[in-house]
Design a protein around this nucleic acid. Structure first.
Lengths: 278, 278
DNA sequence: CTGAAAGCGCTTACAG
DNA sequence: CTGAAAGCGCTTACAG
């Protein structure tokens, strides 16, 4: 054990610094710090004290270079500003545990070139896996090239059925909504939804229609009311209607203005139902 | 140059693989790939072709171990779900450039313990710097311990004036709002704002009051209307008022329901004004 | 129980 | 122009 602390000058302390201060070899210091049991208790204590003294934090890069795992994951979103990436990111973070696995967040801004850049960077950082989050439930083209790590597509499934995708059961969601209204005693039920160009809108409509049919009912107006994906379309404030839509105001937008709890976006046709695998 | 491609079996291709395939040493392969000019053009071409063939992506970890820089930054937020972290994250990402610097996103969920865990993890991953994003403009305690990399506090400044903080000029924001209304010809101006426990509310009120005083006017009601940080407080729908607030409805919440553009949160007292350093 | 040695994938002086 | 060698910070067999 040297006489003075020898705090390293201008760089982060290394295992060698710790070992030197504790008067052992780096091999032993490594074992002590990693909780291997082939170390005498007194030795371990000395090493740990030295590490503490130097505020030693093991270099995860060096460790990863050996182990093959980096403990990092890339989360690639196409639409960070949107409503869906953040909850998914938070769920992933929770699952990974604070500090166990760290996530690289990349926003491709809906641009394929940008996405490719990010993938390249993430792979050279040797992430252990990739999570690709889309902003709607329409299938998207899989990542180009051979990706040497596991990839999970979330929200927007991969167009390749061989890939692993976690997406929303929108057909089931449409069913759930109708079943709920039926359970409330309603019989005259309309379906107000988003643009028919989205799989989400079509799928929910399909589920809703099926549930109504099962109940021996028909949809009010005979078909879903497709419209734009915003609260205005579902709200009561509409004053002029196009000829293809009925003169009738289905929902109150009151939920979007509820008092108290912090203010949250609210979609009128079920996008907020819990995610489940298909 | 070997006769068959020798694609490595079950692992990512390394510089050694590339060098072998190109028939040069790793040193030369390294120089060729990194664009050093001490390499014969023909040799460089051969190396690049080999790299291409193997889909070689240099191991950023190994590179970082040498260079001292990792090209990564930690972004530590306390409130990912809130309104402010995401725009800041996107700005940072833009500034870093896709794939040049990657950002680790960590959400401390407002918990100091969790924050400490994340800091520890980020430091062991040897980030080149840290961005700490708060959810309001009240000063926050600086990160505990000695942080060996540059730290920038954003939105919520550090309580230590020696630290670098980028925050919002709320006093100036309050002034701007009043100046705008004055320019529109208004003379009876009230200030409806958030809870007085927040520096943001107090600062904006201060700026607004000062601008009114400068114009020889007084604030309608004689003082700011402090209330909860939500649209309801600023909106027209209020039916009952506490005795401390006037029977008067200041703002229309219509902006939060505007048609067309995708739906955005809207704060009634200026939080959305552009950020500037103090 | 402890330590010398090899090696993870790369870069950088330093000889040839 | 090219390559052998050392080294970044760590871990892991393998001897002692």
């Amino acid at each position: 054990m040297s006489t003075e602390p020898e705090v390293p000058a201008n760089r982060a302390p290394t295992l060698t610094d710790v070992a030197k201060l504790a008067g052992v070899s780096v091999a032993t210091a490594s074992k002590a710090i990693n909780g291997r049991d082939e170390v005498k208790a007194a030795t371990r204590a000395r090493v740990l004290k030295a590490a503490e003294l130097l505020s030693f934090a093991p270099n995860a890069l060096a460790r990863a270079l050996l182990g093959g795992r980096t403990g990092t994951v890339g989360l690639l979103t196409s639409d960070l500003e949107g409503r869906f990436s953040i909850p998914i990111l938070m769920g992933a973070e929770d699952a990974f545990g604070a500090g166990q696995v760290s996530v690289f967040l990349c926003d491709a801004r809906g641009d394929a070139i940008r996405e490719a850049y990010h993938v390249r960077a993430l792979l050279s950082r040797r992430v252990d896996g990739l999570i690709v989050v889309g902003s709607d439930t329409d299938p998207r083209p899989p990542l180009a090239g051979t990706i040497p790590v596991p990839v999970v597509y979330v929200y927007a499934p991969s167009a390749d059925p061989g890939d692993i995708s976690i997406t929303v059961d929108n057909v089931g969601g449409g069913r759930l909504a109708i079943d709920h209204l039926l359970a409330c005693g309603r019989r005259n039920i309309a379906h107000v939804t988003g643009e028919p160009g989205f799989a989400a809108a079509r799928d929910r409509a399909e589920g809703a229609a099926a549930a109504l049919t099962d109940a021996g009912l028909t949809m009010l107006g005979g078909k879903p009311y497709y419209g734009s994906w915003d609260e205005t379309w579902g709200g009561p404030r509409r004053t002029s209607w196009s000829s293809s839509t009925p003169r009738w105001t289905p929902f109150s937008a009151a939920a979007t203005r509820s008092r108290g709890a912090s203010w949250r976006p609210c979609v009128t046709s079920g996008a907020m139902c819990p995610m489940r695998s298909p």
